[in-house]
């Protein structure tokens, strides 16, 4: 049984696992999610547009008159024209100004908001790498505990338990 368990967990089964995961993932992520309804498209666009008079809510969430007006505008554009989501949003930006955009642009000063998280992540990982390297050098410099060390620890543990 133990032997079976060990053989089961050997590399070939992991390769099988990998193949299963990769193929199922490929099938699942490439097949169509079914047609998006017009309402869902309208919602998707509305989520990316800020309500011009309220505090940071999207047109999708807020229920006031200004938001409803923009929502109707999006609805008309989705129903009556061939415009893509991005074109609709660009049009709204022309009408209402850049502060109706809920997602900051990736150009100019606003690019910082995209760059800084990446920098933070890289710094964090690099910091860890440096720390591990230092710890490794430090550990290499230390010799293994001697038998005398181990006796000392055993004695101290015995003392504690009594």
């Amino acid at each position: 049984m133990n032997d079976l368990n060990r053989r089961l967990k050997s590399w070939p089964s992991w390769v099988v696992l990998l193949i299963v995961v990769a193929s199922v993932l490929a099938v699942g992520s490439t097949r169509s999610a079914g047609p998006q309804t017009q309402e869902e498209r309208i919602d998707a666009v509305a989520r990316r547009v800020a309500c011009p008079v309220c505090n940071g809510e999207s047109v999708f969430e807020s229920r006031n008159r200004a938001s409803r007006a923009i929502r109707n505008e999006i609805t008309d554009l989705v129903r009556a024209t061939e415009a893509t989501d991005d074109q609709i949003i660009a049009g709204l930006e022309n009408t209402y100004g850049a502060d109706v955009l809920l997602v900051p642009k990736a150009t100019g000063f606003d690019a910082l908001i995209w760059v800084l998280p990446a920098v933070a992540f890289v710094l964090g990982v690099a910091g860890l790498a440096v720390a591990f390297r230092r710890w490794k050098l430090q550990a290499d410099a230390n010799v293994d505990p001697t038998d005398a060390d181990r006796d000392l620890v055993a004695a101290a543990l015995r003392d504690r338990d009594e």
């Binding site: 800020a50 502060d99 955009l101």
Partner: peptide, 9 residues
């Protein structure tokens, strides 16, 4: 200038 960072970000 005014800008908004919303949920999609």
């Amino acid at each position: 200038r005014r800008t908004i960072v919303g949920a999609p970000y």
